[in-house]
Design a protein around this nucleic acid. Structure first.
Length: 509
RNA sequence: GGUCUGUUCAUCUAAGGGUUAGGAUUCAAGAUUUUCAUUCUUGCCAUAGGGGUUCGAAUCCCCUACAGACUACCA
């Protein structure tokens, strides 16, 4: 085997937003390319005009960008093998289909969709499956079964014909899949796939093989759903005479639903309460939004880290990987064979790991815009300080707000459970005394509050736990948050006193 | 239905003929935190089933079961 330059491609069809599975396929291609100093290309497979969704291609670009998967060649970035959009390569495919026609590896077929439907339903009624192949093509309308003049006449008169691959009969095709090993298929079970559609567009199979060859792709890394079409593709390479530069094939295991059966689908996310898309997607027709990891507050490196470990492992106990480390460590040999069930909980855990590693400064900068949205006036210093105080207890930037809103505004409600647990008969009187005590303090810094306060409580003979928890309830509205004296310091002396009084007045036992 | 692929704790996975089958997530308990969370410690939990081969099998072979993918003029 020659030392070919590694060139891989991610080839989605723009029929909607990319989902987790697609991102992972792109990621593994990218990691493989970078590991071997190769190129990663994006090719848009838009040969099905009926399923084309405007905006999908831009979404794919943006999603990969957000993930940190950089594209070496593609429709946006250009390259020596442009264009990278199959609709723009339309004219090219025709000649290759014709080459196969000449060599006898393909033929014209004139069957209408209705006729094909009929053949299928009649086979079905007999409990069989209709296959367009060596056995049946003699009974169908095509350039093999029909006399030449009739076939030529049809070709001239009818615009509706397709070009089909002439699948050899009873031939074992064996090919190596880099993670599964040798896989053998017998061609008698395969059908004469359409290569060229009546609308003048190639099908995936033709376009894919032609483009991979022309773009000098060295490795095809794609989802497991393509494994059954590997023999067709191999046979196409042979028919074209490109077998010596045929890419190596690798089929990635599927990503399964967290619960229940089947592969993860676009619907699952909204149903089960986690995003299946990298970015928010709004359906252009229904206007229905689907959540995205970016908008849900996940960091791209955490998202990528999680995805990389879904189906791949380094063979060590390391779990946290930067993109550079992934590029270094990645090998196809360590990709598993079986489908991986997606775990939203672990995704959260990954985000937490990245979250707590961020500096207070970084988090503060992310928090600031959120504060403005909440209608709070605060500067960066404040946002940074608050982030540092509560980041250990958060997974997302949005949770900083959940953990700290009481630092910006007084609680507008008190957690009922905590009230009934802490707000005993004698508490209002105690709290009143404390509010008076707080007014007498001259210095308002956490340590200088804590010390005299503790002495005061001890002198009064009150139960420390009760006092602290009730005080927290007054200030926060619940039973959570950082150190109580730090809260006092931040909200200020008068606000502290005010909140205690308000609680005493408002809370009913 | 047919073809292909797969099957180790609830989940992601390690161990590619010899380990008390390891780690992580989740869950549970304890410690810490005068709250919550974090953190730490501990615990629970697996080789789908059945046959072989072998001194020895999660690992190799066969059968069964289960799961998934594919079976379009969609990719």
């Amino acid at each position: 085997m020659s030392e070919r330059k590694v060139r891989v491609r991610f080839a989605p069809s723009p029929t909607g937003p990319l989902h987790i599975g697609g991102v992972r396929t792109a990621l593994f291609n990218y990691l493989f390319a970078k590991k071997h100093g190769g190129d990663f290309l994006l090719r848009i497979e838009d040969t099905d005009q009926a399923r084309y969704v405007p905006g999908a291609e831009a979404y794919i670009q943006e999603a990969l960008e957000w993930c940190g998967i950089t594209i070496d060649e593609g429709p946006k970035q250009g390259g020596a093998f442009a264009p990278y959009r199959q609709s723009e390569r339309k004219e090219l495919y025709r000649q290759y289909a014709e080459q196969l026609l000449v060599s006898g590896d393909a033929y014209y077929a004139f069957d209408t969709p209705e006729e094909l439907d009929q053949a299928r339903t009649s086979a079905e009624s007999k409990g069989e499956t209709f296959t367009y192949n060596a056995l049946s093509r003699g009974q169908m309308k095509n350039s093999i079964s029909l006399p030449e003049e009739q076939s030529n006449a049809l070709l001239l008169s009818s615009t509706h014909y397709v070009i089909r691959f002439r699948m050899p009969d009873n031939l074992d095709v064996t090919e190596v899949d880099l993670i599964r090993g040798r896989v053998t298929f017998n061609t008698s079970l395969l059908d004469d796939k359409v290569l060229f559609k009546s609308d003048g567009m190639p099908t995936y199979h033709l376009a894919n093989v032609v483009d991979d060859h022309l773009m000098e792709i060295s490795h095809v890394i794609r989802g497991e759903e393509w494994l059954p079409s590997m023999p067709l593709h191999v046979l196409l390479y042979r028919a074209f005479g490109w077998e010596d530069t045929m890419p190596r094939f690798t089929h990635l295991p599927l990503i399964l639903k967290p619960e229940g059966k089947g592969k993860l689908s676009k619907r699952d996310g909204d149903k089960l309460g986690f995003p299946v898309f990298p970015l928010l997607w709004k359906d252009k027709v229904t206007g229905e939004p689907s959540r995205g990891y970016r908008e849900d507050g996940y960091f791209p490196d955490a998202f990528i880290n999680m995805l990389a470990l879904l189906g791949w492992n380094p063979g060590t106990e390391q779990e946290i990987f930067s993109m550079e480390e992934l590029c270094q460590a990645f090998t196809l040999e360590r990709v598993g064979k079986s489908g991986a069930r997606f775990d939203p909980e672990k995704t959260k855990w990954f985000n937490h790991q990245y979250f707590i590693k961020k500096s207070d400064q970084e988090l503060g900068e992310l928090l600031l815009p959120l504060l403005h949205i909440k209608g709070v006036t605060a500067d960066l210093d404040m946002a940074v300080k608050v982030s540092g105080m509560v980041k250990e207890r958060c997974n997302f930037v949005s949770e900083i707000w959940d953990q700290s809103h009481f630092l910006f505004r007084a609680p507008d409600a008190y957690d009922e459970k905590i009230v009934s647990k802490r707000w005993k008969d004698d508490v209002p009187a105690i709290m009143s005394e404390i509010s008076h005590f707080f007014e007498t303090l001259k210095v308002w810094h956490a340590p200088e509050i804590k010390e005299p306060f503790s002495a005061f409580v001890t002198a009064k003979g009150w139960n420390f736990g009760t006092v602290m928890n009730s005080l927290r309830l007054c200030l926060v509205g619940g039973s959570f948050g950082p150190d109580i004296f730090e809260i006092c310091e931040i909200i200020g002396q008068s606000e502290t006193v005010l909140r205690i009084r308000k609680a005493v007045d408002t809370i009913k036992i």
